[in-house]
Write a protein that binds this DNA or RNA. Structure first.
Lengths: 195, 195, 195, 195
DNA sequence: AATGAATGAGATTTCATTCAT
DNA sequence: GATGAATGAAATCTCATTCAT
């Protein structure tokens, strides 16, 4: 029971931080405000996180893990490459759209100097299955023979842009539109047998 | 003459701010540091900008204008739609890569709450020629009949991603790779007569 | 039995406090650190001491008692005044050198405002035998007719200085040197029949 | 004029700190209190001192310099060794008595962990003339052949003790008593031709 | 116009103490 | 009796902004 409450308090702090940081930004979100909104003492936050920077980093890392997990949800290494691609792609953008605060938070602090990036190795390990998929797709001549980084940019870039436009301009991203966009993304990387 | 000196000092402040903010981030860039690096008094900055927030906004707006200008550089409304697209697209990514600080600054603070979004109208006016180009391309069945926002995302998203990967991971973006990527982007939006 | 365990825990707290305070100083020795090093809960300390200030004071008083006791160790009111003096003097400096933490603690916090001075009466009662010895020495024309406070200063002052120099500069205080110093101290207060 | 005011403000901060620290101690003397008593803003203190620790250290160093200067006041390398000794000794204790706050401050924080001791070299350079005097006195068989550290302890120790007793117990230290004590101190270190 | 010393509000963080378990 | 999670008052320190020069 106590275990449970403790876990809840950590989660509570992270969730409150996410809510306030996406609304007000890092500057306008003092620890005292987080404590107040979470209904706890300011000092309590320091029992769970060393300092504000660590709190942000933990939140960052947690969200990244959730995003990766969501992207791989129900993913099976079967079906055509295109089908598999669209599954991953839609999983990802759907999560971004369904969790706007997490998406906004990651995008906003992605390059902030106080966010210690996961090491390149960490990122590679986590994204290994995806990378593997791209490599196989290229080998099978399902995808163009483009550098991995170019492929990532061609597929991930539009997700970020679409999600941002969605958030900024209240554009409705219906399933049809997502389907269209996924198709277009595939066209960008799909192997073209004859020109 | 005084006008001229004044303009210089304003530019100096903006440039120094850009340098420091991209290196240290918003937090670690107090007004006093900007003043010191610019070789002027802290109070002087307040003769050119109302406060720190306005300074950031002005810098933001200036950079945006430069980006738009760079994108339209040497653009002529002639040639095929594909050629015209690739001209715009390459102009844009080239500017991002050649001006990493400006790119990083805009990306980093794009969604910070203290950056007042340009009104939608402003954006539309500035981007009108581009939008017009997309509309014409669709009408001419050179581009797929996708929503404007989807088209923007499909073309602009990869630019941001590629530039970030370039900056983060020191990937060389040779002209060949840019050409490849531009081709792929076009494939994403290009009209496909038969499937 | 419970009494016994209780006494042990009290002693444990005092000893741990002494260790940490001499190493890190008052500031860097929070109650939580004492508890941690003592292997007990922070709250437990408050069952033995009203608050941090009282804890320090208790430690202070305990050490003072030990110092007095050590000084009077094996002291007999027989032999010449000089012999009796040297016995007391050597006992005292030996204790300071053999218990550097206690010495350092008392010296460091002797004049700190949060240490409530023992009342003058307390000090007089505890030091009564010593004072009595000085009075007798003066009456017997073994010591100069100096005010008591001057005598104390002439004899106690060098002990503190020697012990500090010993601790600070790692000077070896051999028995020979202590003997020398004791002799010199006696010269300071010894009655001089003719000048 | 501005120069003068600036110097005054630094001095004002140091003096106010000395007053409050000797009265309330380090803990009970927050920066805000110093600022308030000095009639300045709290932030202003940080223009003159990096942080609280540096402030204390500066105060410490300044006082030490004043003490050394006072001790050497009107000192001439002429007259008998005893006369010269008594001049130095009286200068020193007189300064301690006349500047009780400075004396108390130095004694109180002498061994606090946050006080960075002057390096041994610094101390040696400053005290070189004194040391030289002791060495000459020994060579001339005016002083006993004791280790330097023992001599220092025999002469400096009583000064500290007397000054403390004076401060603590409001003992009047008349010139007669100082003269007595100086004589006694000299007896401690004076060469004894025959025993 | 330019300066930069001074300000003080407000941020982060610590830690003595309490109290439910 | 013992614990240690939680508290929140209070400390240190920063920095956007002002204003006398």
């Amino acid at each position: 029971m106590v275990e449970h409450l403790t876990a809840d308090k950590r989660t509570l702090i992270l969730q409150t931080t996410l809510d306030l940081m996406t609304e007000y930004g890092f500057h306008a979100t003092p620890i005292s405000l987080i404590a107040q909104h979470a209904g706890i003492g300011a000092g309590t936050i320091y029992r769970y996180f060393d300092n504000k920077e660590h709190l942000i980093n933990e939140l960052f890392t947690e969200i990244k893990k959730r995003v990766i997990k969501a992207m791989l949800q129900d993913y099976r290494e079967e079906g055509t490459f295109k089908e598999r691609f669209k599954h991953l792609w839609k999983n990802l953008i759907r999560y971004c759209i369904d969790h706007p605060k997490e998406f906004q938070f990651v995008e906003q602090y992605r390059y902030a100097p106080f966010v210690s990036n996961m090491t390149r190795e960490e990122t590679f390990i986590i994204l290994a299955p995806i990378m593997q998929f791209f490599i196989e797709s290229k080998r099978a001549k399902a995808m163009k023979d483009l550098p991995l980084y170019t492929i990532i940019a061609l597929l991930y870039g539009p997700i970020v842009s679409l999600a941002k436009l969605h958030l900024d301009h209240n554009q409705q991203l219906t399933n049809d539109r997502l389907e269209q966009a996924a198709e277009a993304c595939w066209d960008a990387v799909a192997y073209k047998s004859e020109e």
